[in-house]
C-alpha cells in the first residue's frame, strides 16, 4: 500500500488508573514506520514500550489519539489487523508445558487457520533455522529460557505475518541466542520488501546494530528520532567520557556539577563503570577531581565515539539500564 505507513500513531496517549492514581504511560506519541523498516524503540524500564506494543497489537485501546497498523485503526479494525501481525515478548512462557515444541507450534498455527500440512512444513523449516531440531519433540516445560525464546520466535514468524512486534525479544538471553534471533529478524525483513518490524529494547547495542531508525522513548514521550547515525551526530558538540571507578562511590553529585548534562553508571565486577556527557571539554577536570575527592580511584578513563547511550544520557540526564 503506497503512501500508507505500516505502523503509525498520532497524538497517541494512554493513561492507566490504579488505586486512584493516574499513570500517563504514553504522552502524545507520534510515530510513522515505513514498510520494510526495522524500527526500534529504545527506552528504560517503565518508559511505555510495552504499552505501545500492546496498543499496536490490538490488546489495549488508546485513551486518545489514534494508532494504525497497515492503515487500519487499532481501535475499530481489529479484524483486518490480527491476521497480518504477530508478536513476541521477552521472557514469554506461552504454550502448554505438557506439549512438545512441535505440538505447541502446531496448535498456535491453527489459531491462524494455516492448513495442517503447510503448518508442519513451515514449523520444520523454522525449527531448523532456529537450530532446535534436537528439541523438536521435547516437552516445552523442559526448555531453557533461550530455547523457549527460539520457539516463541518460530511461533510468531510461522504464521506469515506482514508486521511483527518484538517486545524486548532478547531480554535475558545469552549472546549466541540473541545473535541468532537478530540475524533471523534482519534476514526475514530483507526477503520481502512488504515486511515491517517494530522492536523495543533497552539494550542500546541491539538498537544500534539492528535498527534502520530508532525512537528514544522516556517517560511515555518520544524524545528523539532518527537513524542511529543521525542520533549519534546530535552529541557531536558535546563531550562524552567513560571511566571505571573503584571502589564504587555514589555519583549523585554529578547532577549539580556545572557543565555536566547527565551520566549513567552501572556496576561491573566490583567496579563502577560510568559514562558522563558534558557540554564541552572544560568540565572534564572537575569531574575527575570530583571522583578522587570522594574516595574513588579512577582505574581507566577514555574518550571515544559517542554511543546511543550517550544520546540518551544527554536527552534525559540518566542512563538506560
Amino acid at each position: 500500500m503506497p503512501g500508507v505507513y505500516s505502523i503509525e500513531s498520532r497524538s497517541l496517549t494512554r493513561t492507566f488508573k490504579s488505586k486512584g492514581e493516574v499513570v500517563e504511560a504514553l504522552k502524545e506519541v507520534d510515530l510513522s514506520v515505513r514498510q520494510g523498516e526495522l524500527f526500534g524503540l529504545l527506552g528504560p524500564n517503565g518508559a511505555g514500550k510495552t504499552t505501545l506494543i500492546k496498543i499496536f497489537t490490538t490488546l489495549l485501546l488508546p485513551t486518545s489519539g489514534y494508532a494504525k497498523v497497515a492503515g487500519h485503526d487499532v481501535a475499530k479494525e481489529v479484524k483486518q489487523i490480527r491476521p497480518i501481525i504477530n508478536m513476541v515478548t521477552g521472557g514469554e512462557h506461552s504454550g502448554y508445558g505438557l506439549l512438545t515444541v512441535r505440538e505447541n507450534l502446531w496448535m498456535f498455527s491453527q489459531f491462524y487457520g494455516i492448513p495442517g500440512k503447510v503448518a508442519k512444513e513451515r514449523i520444520d523449516s523454522l525449527i531448523d533455522r532456529m537450530r532446535i531440531t534436537h528439541l523438536a519433540d521435547r516437552k516445552i516445560r523442559t526448555l531453557s529460557t533461550g530455547e523457549r525464546q527460539r520457539v516463541n520466535i518460530i511461533r510468531a514468524f510461522m504464521t506469515g505475518p506482514k508486521i511483527v512486534f518484538l517486545d524486548e525479544p532478547t531480554l535475558g538471553l545469552d549472546v549466541e541466542t540473541s545473535r541468532l534471533i537478530r540475524r533471523y529478524v534482519k534476514e526475514w525483513l530483507e526477503q520481502d520488501g512488504e515486511r515491517t518490524v517494530l522492536l523495543t529494547t533497552h539494550y542500546m547495542m541491539e538498537a544500534d546494530e539492528l535498527c534502520d531508525r530508532i525512537a528514544i522513548i522516556n517517560d511515555g514521550e518520544i524524545v528523539a528520532l532518527g537513524t542511529p547515525r543521525e542520533l549519534k551526530k546530535r552529541i557531536q558538540d558535546e563531550t562524552a567520557i567513560g571511566m571505571e571507578i573503584s571502589p564504587e562511590i555514589d555519583l549523585g553529585w554529578l547532577d549539580g556539577t556545572k557543565g555536566v548534562m547527565g551520566y549513567s553508571a552501572k556496576e561491573e565486577g566490583g567496579m563502577l563503570s560510568a559514562r558522563v556527557v558534558m557540554e564541552d571539554d572544560s568540565a572534564v577536570s572537575d569531574v575527575l577531581s570530583g571522583v578522587t575527592a570522594r574516595g574513588g580511584r579512577i582505574i581507566s578513563f577514555y574518550k571515544d565515539e559517542p554511543t546511543l547511550e550517550d544520546v540518551f544520557v544527554k536527552l534525559t540526564g540518566r542512563g538506560l539500564e
Binding site: H93, Y96, G97, L98, L99, R141
Partner: peptide, 8 residues
C-alpha cells in the same frame, strides 16, 4: 521439578 508448570 521445582518449577515445572503442568497446565493443559
Amino acid at each position: 521439578m521445582l518449577d515445572m508448570t503442568t497446565t493443559y
